[in-house]
Design a protein around this nucleic acid. Structure first.
Lengths: 163, 163
DNA sequence: TATTGTTATACTCTATAACTATA
DNA sequence: TATAGTTATAGAGTATAACAATA
């Protein structure tokens, strides 16, 4: 088109629209996949995403986590963690154990039933993710992973530094 | 999306499938950006994302849209559209007009105050998006856009049109 | 009968803040 | 006083379903 006479302002404007289109596509792709996963978790395991996430946190830490540590890791406030742990405990998927040194605090961990249930859910979950990302070839997935890494952390050539 | 703010990437295990790591990174990046935009819209314009989205739909269709068309485009059920339009109409940002041919239906459109307010918000919004995507160079953004196009529509051997 | 839109209701997820028990 | 956790409440955001008016 007008490559030879590109005005910086025009180009900047066009780039802005390009970023906006990229963002809308990013949002649309992610939302579609997340909604599918949420719906399948609900239908097949009768579980919500935050509950799944909490169990995933516990699965990574077999020795258990305190309520406040769960709150910190899930980046939600304490009251919400209480509610989720209440539900999961009622279903005997997690367990509150009192601490020896500090009687204000609990250690929350998966029960064996919880570990078993989570293993089945995580397996299905991984299969769905593989399925939903399958339009991209392995090499494209690697490329996408790298680009998102840059988006997340800034470019590897210019890492965040204090100047 | 609404959404929890967990950094989902921490759920990744070394032995998880590469697709799962990709998905967690995709979700994490998108959620982080969306939460930032949602917060800024709230703080600076006292508006929610669904209300912003509804106004964006109307801005693209100056002749207006019916409630059911808004519902279809926003992919939420009719009752929700009624509630959002009620709020925006109370603030005189949008207008319901009765149809001539079908007295069941309304045409919803932006008022001039609504167009003005939306223009300011859209400008800020676009600036935020440019800022939040700025870790990626233009060429990387193009690459990402293409990869997400493939993810959305399936492989080029099985195209499905639409952007 | 079907469609457009509204109303009523409920559930999840979230935050804030007051509260209890313990440190 | 400070911290760990709970409870109470409120408000988005969503869905379903019953409903009224109109086609």
């Amino acid at each position: 088109m007008n490559k030879h006479h590109t005005d910086m302002e025009v180009r900047a404007h066009a780039d802005h629209h390009a970023s906006l289109r990229l963002w809308l596509r990013l949002l649309s792709c992610t939302t579609r996949i997340e909604d599918t996963i949420r719906q399948r978790l609900r239908e097949q395991f009768d579980i919500t995403l935050p509950r799944f996430d909490l169990m995933a946190q516990l699965e990574r830490e077999p020795q258990g986590l305190s309520m406040s540590e769960l709150s910190r890791r899930m980046m939600v406030t304490g009251g919400n963690v209480t509610a989720i742990v209440d539900q999961l405990e009622k279903e005997q998927l997690v367990l509150r154990q009192t601490q020896v040194g500090d009687r204000r605090s609990f250690t929350v961990s998966l029960t064996s039933a919880g570990r078993e249930a989570f293993a089945a859910m995580a397996l299905a979950h991984e299969g769905w993710v593989v399925e939903l990302l399958s339009p991209l070839a392995d090499q494209e997935q690697t490329q996408l992973h790298q680009l998102l890494g840059t988006l997340k952390s800034g470019p590897p050539t210019q890492p965040k530094e204090k100047t």
